[in-house]
Amino acid sequence: MGVKIEVFRMMLYLSFPVTMFWISNQAEYFEEYIVKRKREIFPPGEELQRRELEAFKERMRARKEQRMLKSLSAESEN
């Protein structure tokens, strides 16, 4: 009887995470919960917010480029 209970426990331990992984990766679940929640938090119709975000990204990219140029020029001087 001991081997049968151990096999059952091992199947239970393995099947639970595999089942949860399979359920959580279903396309319907993803669309229903994740995408809808993201659209609630970040509404797609906010044109002003999108432009501000794009401007912020551009400023960060330019700042990063300036830092890289400074570090390269400092290295070339040495």
Score class of each variant (00 low, 15 high):
residue 17 P to L: 07
residue 58 E to S: 11
residue 33 Y to S: 14
residue 18 V to Y: 06
residue 77 E to D: 15
residue 60 M to R: 02
residue 55 A to L: 13
residue 61 R to S: 13
residue 68 M to L: 08
residue 65 E to F: 04
residue 44 P to F: 10
residue 22 W to C: 03
residue 40 E to G: 02
residue 60 M to Y: 06
residue 62 A to V: 01
residue 66 Q to H: 03
residue 39 R to L: 15
residue 9 R to H: 08
residue 13 Y to H: 01
residue 44 P to G: 14
residue 46 E to V: 00
residue 32 E to G: 12
residue 61 R to G: 05
residue 14 L to A: 09
residue 19 T to A: 15
residue 64 K to I: 09
residue 33 Y to M: 12
residue 48 L to A: 12
residue 52 E to A: 06
residue 58 E to G: 02
residue 11 M to C: 14
residue 3 V to I: 11
residue 60 M to A: 11
residue 66 Q to D: 12
residue 25 N to C: 05
residue 38 K to I: 15
residue 54 E to R: 05
residue 1 M to A: 07
residue 3 V to L: 07
residue 39 R to N: 14
residue 34 I to E: 10
residue 41 I to R: 14
residue 14 L to S: 03
residue 53 L to M: 10
residue 9 R to P: 00
residue 16 F to T: 12
residue 23 I to S: 00
residue 63 R to M: 15
residue 33 Y to L: 14
residue 45 G to E: 15
residue 53 L to H: 07
residue 48 L to S: 09
residue 51 R to K: 04
residue 57 K to R: 06
residue 38 K to H: 13
residue 17 P to M: 13
residue 42 F to D: 09
residue 56 F to E: 09
residue 13 Y to Q: 04
residue 59 R to Y: 13
residue 68 M to Q: 08
residue 60 M to E: 14
residue 30 F to W: 10
residue 56 F to Q: 04
residue 44 P to N: 05
residue 60 M to P: 00
residue 16 F to A: 11
residue 61 R to I: 04
residue 40 E to P: 01
residue 35 V to H: 01
residue 17 P to W: 02
residue 7 V to M: 03
residue 51 R to M: 11
residue 73 S to G: 03
residue 64 K to V: 09
residue 70 K to A: 09
residue 7 V to F: 02
residue 77 E to R: 12
residue 48 L to N: 05
residue 32 E to R: 14
residue 67 R to C: 03
residue 50 R to W: 01
residue 68 M to D: 04
residue 73 S to K: 13
residue 15 S to Q: 03
residue 75 E to V: 15
residue 60 M to V: 11
residue 39 R to H: 14
residue 1 M to E: 11
residue 50 R to Q: 13
residue 59 R to S: 13
residue 59 R to M: 15
residue 19 T to Q: 14
residue 67 R to L: 12
residue 43 P to L: 10
residue 14 L to H: 03
residue 12 L to E: 04
residue 24 S to N: 07
residue 70 K to D: 13
residue 42 F to V: 15
residue 16 F to C: 07
residue 20 M to Y: 07
residue 4 K to W: 07
residue 56 F to L: 13
residue 5 I to P: 01
residue 40 E to R: 11
residue 68 M to C: 02
residue 61 R to Y: 10
residue 75 E to N: 12
residue 24 S to I: 10
residue 20 M to G: 01
residue 37 R to P: 01
residue 24 S to T: 08
residue 1 M to Y: 09
residue 36 K to A: 03
residue 65 E to C: 01
residue 15 S to D: 04
residue 18 V to A: 12
residue 2 G to N: 10
residue 13 Y to F: 05
residue 32 E to N: 08
residue 55 A to D: 08
residue 12 L to N: 03
residue 75 E to C: 12
residue 16 F to Q: 09
residue 6 E to M: 02
residue 72 L to S: 10
residue 61 R to E: 15
residue 10 M to V: 00
residue 51 R to I: 11
residue 44 P to R: 01
residue 9 R to G: 09
residue 50 R to G: 00
residue 10 M to F: 08
residue 78 N to S: 12
residue 2 G to V: 04
residue 8 F to E: 10
residue 76 S to T: 09
residue 10 M to H: 13
residue 13 Y to W: 05
residue 33 Y to T: 03
residue 16 F to V: 14
residue 21 F to K: 03
residue 24 S to G: 03
residue 35 V to W: 01
residue 52 E to P: 00
residue 55 A to N: 07
residue 47 E to V: 06
residue 32 E to Q: 08
residue 24 S to F: 08
residue 30 F to H: 15
residue 19 T to G: 12
residue 55 A to F: 08
residue 62 A to F: 04
